[in-house]
């Protein structure tokens, strides 16, 4: 007992200062950032270079953050990682335009108070997104300090965090889980798979995306997104998201 106290005291405070301070490089590694380029640079890319992207995320004017799986192949022809956690979070349109929440003041999607209960559902993930979502409960991120909590039943949940690409078997469970939640409720799709099926877009058993099954309010891009980006997403649902000035 006392030795646990000793251990804890010896480690000191580990918890992130995010969102009060900007995310550090440790909290937001390159792979968690958004590969972007100026529209004119993108326009210069050849079709061959464009087709190197395994998910077809590179569009004429922007990189579709929702599709990008951060494989970094495109770094070879000049795209660069940049951005804040808020850049990973946005509506489907915002992510498609490489914008994210970073460019606007987020508004709460549901009449929530400031404290939310979060239930996570896995509909076919590789477990990396699950791990990053659950990492919010560990000392480095500690979502409880922000009045956010994990719950073990959708009956008690305000926010449904969906990870993974829906397999045929998980379509119905996802729908049931959404049905089981009391209103008001919101859905946060986390990770490339949950946004637009990611690498699995042309897979044999992964034909539908989460947005076609339940209404998604906000998306968190990444493969997997870093915990701070997921945190940003949950906060945004409560109307506590970043503004461009605050978090850049």
């Amino acid at each position: 007992m006392t030795s646990w106290i000793r251990h804890s005291a010896a480690r000191g405070i580990l918890t992130s200062r995010y969102p009060d301070r900007a995310a550090t490089d440790e909290e937001l590694p390159e792979a968690g950032r958004t590969p972007t380029a100026h529209p004119e640079e993108l326009a210069r890319l050849s079709d061959g270079e464009r087709s190197l992207c395994p998910t077809g995320a590179i569009r004429e004017q922007a990189v579709d953050q929702g599709r990008c799986i951060r494989c970094e192949r495109c770094f070879a022809f000049g795209l660069r990682p940049l951005g804040s956690p808020a850049m990973n979070v946005g509506t489907r349109e915002e992510l498609r335009e490489s914008a994210g929440l970073a460019d606007r003041r987020p508004t709460s999607v549901a009449p929530f108070g400031t404290s939310l209960h979060v239930f996570m559902i896995d509909v076919g993930s590789c477990h990396a997104c699950n791990a990053e979502v659950l990492a919010l409960g560990t000392p480095y991120y500690d979502l409880n300090r922000l009045g956010l909590f994990f719950t073990n039943s959708p009956r008690h949940a305000d926010v449904l965090v969906v990870v993974g690409v829906p397999t045929p078997e998980m379509v119905e469970p996802l729908r049931r889980t959404y049905e089981a939640m009391p209103g008001p409720k919101a859905v946060l799709a986390v990770g490339a798979c949950a946004i637009d099926r990611g690498i699995f877009a042309d897979g044999p058993r992964t034909g539908s995306s989460v947005g076609e099954i339940v209404p998604v309010d906000l998306y968190v891009a990444g493969c997997p997104p870093p915990p701070v980006a997921i945190l940003e997403g949950v906060l945004a649902l409560a109307g506590r998201g970043a503004t461009p000035e605050e978090r850049r």
């Binding site: 998980m170 119905e172 469970p173 996802l174 049931r176 889980t177 049905e179 089981a180």
Partner: peptide
């Protein structure tokens, strides 16, 4: 009132 099925881990 909205009535929902009993929660059964996503199953029927």
């Amino acid at each position: 009132l909205r009535r929902a099925d009993a929660w059964s881990g996503g199953r029927a």
